[in-house]
């Protein structure tokens, strides 16, 4: 076994010497154990770096990003729904405000109407009162005029009777008679 290795080494040296001129250092078998040893060392180190650090980390990053995208989409959907809700609430508020405004307008109109009605009623009552007073005054004036006429008629009748038949000149009777005639 040992002699084999020695032989291989010797052969390697020989090939190496020749290699300078022949030009295939790859066939220098003397370097093979060295190369394979360092290759194994390199691959083991690289494998553990990949397996322990790089792969878990990158896999985590990728799945995290996948999750983030999914949750972002979900959030976007949620926000869209909220926007729709807000729009509905806004429309609702607008409609409410409009209804409220209409109600206030109607109320104000009704109040004004009531005031107008009250004022009209008062004015009518006043007019009626004034009319009644005027009527009363007219009636009074008319009554006064009647009395005056009666007075004049009575006085005239008494004087006429005194002139024509002084014996009959009884003021009371004449007055009664005149009153009866005037009324009739």
């Amino acid at each position: 076994m040992a002699s084999d290795i020695e032989m291989a080494k010797a052969a390697g040296e020989a090939v190496k010497e020749a290699g300078e001129s022949v030009g295939m250092p790859q066939l220098d078998f003397g370097t093979y154990p060295n190369q394979i040893f360092w290759l194994v060392v390199t691959l083991v180190i690289l494998f553990f770096l990949m397996k322990r650090i790089a792969i878990p980390r990158i896999a985590a990053i990728l799945s995290e990003r996948q999750g983030a995208i999914a949750s972002d989409l979900e959030q976007a959907e949620e926000m869209r729904r909220k926007a729709v809700e807000a729009e509905q609430a806004y429309n609702q508020a607008l409609a409410d405000a409009r209804a409220e405004a209409n109600r206030i307008i109607a109320e104000a109109k009704a109040e004004i109407q009531k005031d107008v009605d009250a004022a009209t009623a008062r004015a009518e009552a006043e007019i009626a009162a004034k009319a009644a007073e005027s009527e009363k005054r007219i009636a009074e004036i008319r009554a006064g005029a009647m009395e005056a006429v009666e007075q004049v008629a009575r006085d005239a009748a008494v004087e006429i009777v005194e002139l024509i038949m002084p014996s009959l000149a009884d003021a009371k009777t004449i007055e009664k008679a005149v009153a009866a005639r005037v009324k009739g």
């Binding site: 060295n34 360092w38 390199t42 770096l49 650090i53 990158i58 985590a60």
Partner: peptide, 27 residues
């Protein structure tokens, strides 16, 4: 050997790209 050196540099390059390059774990 010179090959050992360059295999070491290969590990370094892979580490720089795959481990140092991802150290921030940025979304």
């Amino acid at each position: 050997t010179n090959m050992t050196l360059w295999m070491g540099i290969a590990i370094l390059a892979a580490t720089l790209l795959l481990i140092v390059g991802t150290r921030r774990r940025a979304i």
